[in-house]
Design a protein around this nucleic acid. Structure first.
Length: 262
DNA sequence: ATGGTAGGTCTCCTA
C-alpha cells in the first residue's frame, strides 16, 4: 500500500481550516501533520475535516500558541505527547497507524532573535529542546518511524536564500545546525526531502514581512520529513508546495509532502 | 542600521 503524508505549519488551524480542506482536496494526502494550530484540542475544527474523509485526530493543543495535530483518513493510536525541555508548550505528538508506522510531529521552538544562550533565554530553550530530542532518540531507537514538523532550522546552505548572510541569523547558525544534526544521528534518521531533492535551493517558509515574498524569494527550509533508516528506502516522491504561499491569506509556511510504499 | 507583517489571550506576546 501507499501512504501519502504531509506536514504544514498552518499558523492558526481555525482561521485556515478552509485552506487545509483545499490542500486535502487538491492533493492525494492520507495523513497531515499540522503545527502552530493555536487552538485548544476541544476547539479543533475536526468536523470540517471529517466531512472530507479525515475523521481521525490526535492533537496536543494550548490556547493561542503552539499546538500540533495529526489528521488522518486512517485510525491513529496516540503514542505520546512529550514536553521536551519542560517548557509546558504543546510542541510534540506521536501516533501509530494500524500498519505499525509511528509518526512524530514536532514544532521546535523558534528561538528568538539573538543567537546567544546567555543573552537570550528563548535561544537557550531551543538548544535544550533539541538536546532532549537527541537524548530521547538515543534511548528510544526509531523503527518504522517518520519524524516531521517545523524544526525551525534550515541546516544546509541550499536551505536558505543566502548562506553567508544567514550565518548569524537564528535558524541557520552553526550551533543550531550541530544540535539538529545530533538529533538526526541519534535516531539514525534520513532527511527524506534531501534524499529526493539533493542539490537545488529549497524553501518551505517565506516571511510575512517581505514586500513581495516570491520575487525577493528570501526563503528558508524550516519544515522537514525524516524517516528511520529501516524504511527510508520505501519513502520518496518528495515535494514542497511553493504555490500554497500565494493562496489567499496564506500561512507563512507551505506543505511538505512525501510518499511511503510498504 | 532599521523595520517590515500576521495571529491571538489583542494596547502585548509570539513568530
Amino acid at each position: 500500500m501507499t501512504l501519502n503524508i504531509a506536514t504544514w505549519n498552518i499558523n492558526s488551524v481555525r482561521l485556515r481550516a478552509d485552506l487545509v480542506c483545499k490542500l486535502l482536496k487538491n492533493e492525494d494526502i492520507d495523513l497531515l501533520c499540522l503545527q502552530e494550530c493555536k487552538s485548544p484540542v476541544e476547539k479543533f475544527p475536526l468536523d470540517v475535516f471529517s466531512k472530507i474523509g479525515f475523521s481521525h485526530l490526535v492533537a496536543c493543543g494550548q490556547k493561542g500558541y503552539n499546538g500540533v495535530a495529526i489528521v488522518s483518513k486512517f485510525p491513529l493510536l496516540e503514542k505520546c505527547a512529550i514536553d521536551f525541555a519542560g517548557l509546558g508548550h504543546a510542541r510534540h505528538i506521536a501516533a501509530q497507524l494500524e500498519n505499525g508506522i509511528t509518526i512524530h510531529n514536532f514544532y521546535v521552538p523558534a528561538g528568538g532573535d539573538e543567537p546567544d544562550r546567555q543573552k537570550n533565554e528563548k535561544f537557550d530553550q531551543k538548544l535544550n529542546y533539541l538536546t532532549e530530542m537527541r537524548d530521547y532518540f538515543n534511548a528510544n531507537e526509531p523503527k518504522k518511524s517518520i519524524l516531521v514538523g517545523d524544526l525551525n532550522i534550515a541546516p544546509r546552505p541550499e536551505d536558505v536564500w543566502d548562506h553567508k548572510k544567514m550565518a548569524k541569523i537564528v535558524s541557520h547558525t552553526e550551533v543550531e545546525i550541530d544540535h539538529l544534526d545530533a538529533v538526526l544521528r541519534a535516531g539514525n534518521w534520513v532527511d527524506v526531502t534531501r534524499k529526493d531533492i539533493p542539490q537545488q535551493k529549497l524553501y518551505s517558509w517565506w516571511s510575512y514581512r517581505a514586500k513581495d515574498w516570491s520575487s525577493s524569494d528570501r526563503g528558508r527550509r524550516l519544515d522537514h520529513i525524516w524517516a528511520s533508516a529501516d524504511i527510508a528506502l520505501n519513502i520518496g516522491s518528495s515535494r514542497i508546495l511553493r504555490e500554497v504561499r500565494g493562496w489567499d491569506r496564506p500561512s507563512d509556511h507551505v506543505p511538505v509532502l512525501a510518499t511511503i510504499d510498504l
